[in-house]
Write a protein that binds this DNA or RNA. Structure first.
Lengths: 179, 179
DNA sequence: GCGGGCATGTAAGCGGTTACATGATTGA
DNA sequence: TCAATCATGTAACCGCTTACATGCCCGC
């Protein structure tokens, strides 16, 4: 079985949620996946083309009233199979999370205590903003996808975001004091 | 002032810690920064060449007894300046941490509960291993860099890793139960 | 008529890894 | 002599973003 990258599987997965066009995929991504998997049109459209060529999806041109034409993509049995197979595989290894703040703090001796503290305060603010966003997305899923069988899983991923962000905020506070 | 990417600044920063060759940079990275900033030779050597051309570092060929020749890189005042300037800048935004496990869980409805649980158990194991590594690195810094003014900052970055990893492990446990 | 949302697409270029190539030196 | 460590380097290729280009349709 041919191997694809994770972004390709992400696209394949989103096509099972009711989003059927490149544009709709991007929309869902920006709403729900954006905190752990972001993607641009420059990646989406060529990937859809490739998936079509490899017969994991089929494409049909559809007309809509009041909107421009769009291409509707549907998974073939082969496509669903590829998705399920990928889902069942354990990840190879946890990837390295490149963190610019940690990188700067690593070289903290070249800065004043005050400058290091400012960097951490700034980071903390950004983390708190992000946490607010997570709460907002969770709320939006609970109200707009009440009966969607996906909702449960989407909330799990948000919970991950919340927990690790809270831990990072705690670290900021502790480090600001200790520095 | 010319802009460089973070990896270039990472290399510049490491050159201030006593590591002076491309090989030594890679070694320190693999020991200490590897959990939040990884890098390959294919990036290091061309970057050192570029930094030399731009006069942020100088290079001298040095002989060693019992070892092959190596190139020794030293920061120029211009280079130190560039590093300090970068250090003082707040980050633009927190980058998206791409997480393959979350991506798979997001599409969890296509799998059995048992399969989702297995994925999480596997992830938890990998996180626990990582946590052990963090403890080992912290111990190694405390013993081998006792009087190094960098040690404090290096331990801060490790603390970040520990805290967020523990939070992720907790999430795994909670999600395994809830699923 | 025009701005904004809907919709599809491509080309350039960056950052990065992998795999390969080369060679010195030492100790078993 | 051979494996291991030290040491430097490059070419091919991948994944991805950014910027740009095009065009439909609706309501103001």
């Amino acid at each position: 079985m041919k191997e694809y990258n994770n972004t390709t599987y992400a696209i394949l997965g989103i096509l099972t949620t009711g989003c059927k066009s490149g544009y709709a995929i991007k929309q869902l991504m920006d709403q729900s996946l954006t905190h752990f998997w972001k993607i641009s049109y420059g990646q989406i459209y060529p990937t859809l083309k490739q998936l079509t060529a490899n017969e994991l999806v089929t494409v049909t041109n559809t007309q809509q009233d009041g909107k421009p034409d769009r291409k509707e993509y549907d998974l073939t049995p082969k496509g669903l199979n590829a998705l399920k197979n990928w889902l069942s595989q354990p990840i190879e290894q946890i990837p390295v999370e490149r963190n610019e703040v940690l990188l700067k703090l690593f070289f903290g001796k070249h800065q004043s205590t005050e400058q290091n503290r400012m960097q951490l305060e700034d980071y903390k603010r950004k983390l708190e903003e992000r946490l607010q966003t997570y709460h907002a997305i969770a709320h939006s899923i609970q109200t707009h996808h009440e009966n969607d069988p996906n909702a449960q899983y989407w909330l799990f991923t948000l919970d991950y975001g919340k927990r690790t962000t809270v831990a990072a905020i705690d670290w900021c506070e502790a480090t600001i004091k200790a520095i």
